[in-house]
Design a binder for these strands. Structure first.
Lengths: 345, 345
DNA sequence: TGTTAGCACTCAAGGCTTAAGAGTGCTAAC
DNA sequence: GTTAGCACTCTTAAGCCTTGAGTGCTAACA
């Protein structure tokens, strides 16, 4: 469908537009790119490419601009050719920094978002792991006051969460200890999902002697688990969007920043296609969310125990430097997975 | 120095500018405000006011605009006259919402920032309490793995912090328990400041039998305490700045948003004058930080045990609705203090 | 003496026109 | 099939003019 020369012309247009953000015409193209044919011929090819939907004209005499379809072709080709080898040295350097600066997982993801944005010059977004998929490593109930119990939960990824449970009667420390130990034995190694389901059954049958105490605690634990299931959303480099001429328009910039600031929406965005594995690129109109319809979103997942547990990505104009962005995301995907592996050991 | 009529004219200019954001001329002023004199007289008064530094002219034929000095006069007058009675009903409603939606202190401050921004239509910023000033309620060391100990710290405001300590040798659970109990007895009720100072002394003398174990833990605990001393910074409604015509300029908007996004800078800003008590208003050039030099910043403190432990504020154009903002901040100051009181009980 | 009307003057902003420049599409010749 | 040439299109920037809001000064008035 697209012969060799058409591809060449198309790539030249894309290349030029990635750099300049200006529509390009046949004559300029023939001067700047050594295509071996005259501007008139290029003109004809460009006309064909427009008809095929790969190029757009902002107006009659303005030169042409790549369409989403063109970027899609271009990106698919990049991915196919595996041009994108990550720089091992850079990877290791970033891994060092991340490991050094991050003591817990939330911090790790936040730092990753920060560095990713700094490297790519685009806005970065990320979600921290969904607890549902993470395994319990330790649970402990600690008496604080007469009516207050601190519940501490440690996951296998090193995440620690605590909730203060307010109970109606005083529960002696040794009872709490016994209960803690029991819960540990029964629940250790289960995901939070599984805990949610089995909790009721197990407890009521086997811990009859502490029934009264447990009755008052169990709903609180369940509630706490539910509360914990919020994924954290991080964004960094939001104002980088101002660097792109396509966002010189204040309303567009506002829409973009407002969108990124809305953590809930970003969570939905990143949880879409339910953490499907690997690298994902959504170009322009392919995006569901309106403010992203002239952006491209590139995301990568990170894993633990072979299971995808979170996502990190960059957002920029469709005219973005896909190669750099893809490289960076591959790199972070691998690094995060490796560091999480270390954390959980 | 300023006679009655000058004040009247000045206030009319301010009033008009607060609403319209446009420079106002003598004729328009005389038509819209019932000042009882002709535009020519107003013209003379405005000329005087300009000479005195209360009015500025954007250019020769553009009408006049209040200066920072004018706003300062205006604001001082507002504060003096105590015009600003807070709406008890509204206060209680917000208190209800805050109490309902906030389980821990960080969440409380974040929610407060969110609601404050929604009410005032300005960008809000806040810092969570500085741990230094907060008292320890409970500390517990929990064994997790062979080489890992979880340290949980509960403050009197209900803040819970944990750190995983990695130690070199396995420490038996009962030893950890003994140490925990000892630490609790010795440190309970002290502020983190005081703990940092006395820790070394107390421990080494009295816990000789666990010296070896403690030697390996103490530095880790100290480090953790230091790590914890980061105040959290929250901002909300950042994009509200786009609603003001003075920020239609993209570079100004970028500078503003970049500034607000820089949490460290905001922390410095709010920690300035070291949490001096009460309401504070900084107008335009009074601000130290460049991006705020045409903004006004209004902050209020919140307290615990009579001690100021944090700050919340709004940032807007100097042309801001001071009365609403001041009312809102008074209200949040009181509410946060009251809710913290509840939390710590 | 303070107030006011009147008038000349200033300046920004918006509208119009024009010219320049980049580009297209078509045609005819190579 | 490729290319040169040309008429045509459309945006952008510059220049010019007009309009309108506003100022400051002067002279007259109460």
């Amino acid at each position: 469908m697209l012969d060799d020369r058409k591809i060449k012309v198309l790539y030249a247009v894309i290349d030029s537009y990635l750099i300049s953000a200006e529509p390009i015409g046949s004559r300029t193209l023939s001067k700047q790119y050594n295509l071996g044919v005259s501007s008139a011929t290029i003109r004809n090819e460009m006309s064909d490419l427009e008809e095929l939907g790969y190029l757009n004209k902002p107006h009659t005499s303005a030169g042409r601009v790549p369409s989403d379809k063109a970027y899609r072709l271009y990106v698919n080709e990049i991915l196919k050719k595996e041009k994108i080898k990550i720089d091992i040295e850079k990877k290791e350097e970033i891994k060092r920094i991340l490991t050094k600066e991050s003591k817990e997982i939330d911090q790790l993801i936040q730092n990753a978002a920060r560095i990713l944005s700094a490297i790519t010059k685009y806005t970065s977004i990320a979600i921290s792991p969904q607890l549902k998929k993470i395994k319990l490593k330790h649970i402990q109930l600690i008496p604080i006051d007469d009516m207050e119990i601190l519940m501490v939960i440690v996951s296998d990824t090193g995440i620690v969460k605590n909730t203060i449970l307010r109970v109606k009667q005083n529960i002696p420390a040794d009872q709490l200890n016994t209960i803690s130990n029991f819960l540990n034995i029964k629940l250790k190694g289960l995901t939070f999902d599984e805990i949610g389901k089995t909790m009721g059954d197990v407890i009521f049958k086997e811990m009859y002697e502490f029934k009264e105490v447990i009755d008052s605690i169990i709903p609180l634990i369940n509630q706490s688990l539910k509360d914990m299931d919020n994924v954290e959303v991080y964004a960094d480099g939001v104002t980088k969007i101002f660097d792109f001429p396509e966002y010189k328009d204040i309303d567009k910039a506002k829409a973009f920043i407002s969108f990124i600031e809305d953590k809930e929406q970003i969570a939905n965005l990143l949880l879409d296609n339910s953490l499907q594995n690997g690298l994902e690129i959504t170009i322009g109109e392919e995006n569901i969310y309106d403010p992203l319809k002239d952006c491209s979103l590139i995301t990568a997942t990170y894993k633990l125990d072979g299971k995808t547990i979170g996502k990190i990505g960059v957002v920029g104009p469709t005219r973005m430097d896909y190669i750099t962005a893809i490289k960076a995301l591959r790199l972070f995907s691998i690094n995060l997975t490796e560091i999480l592996e270390m954390f959980s050991r």
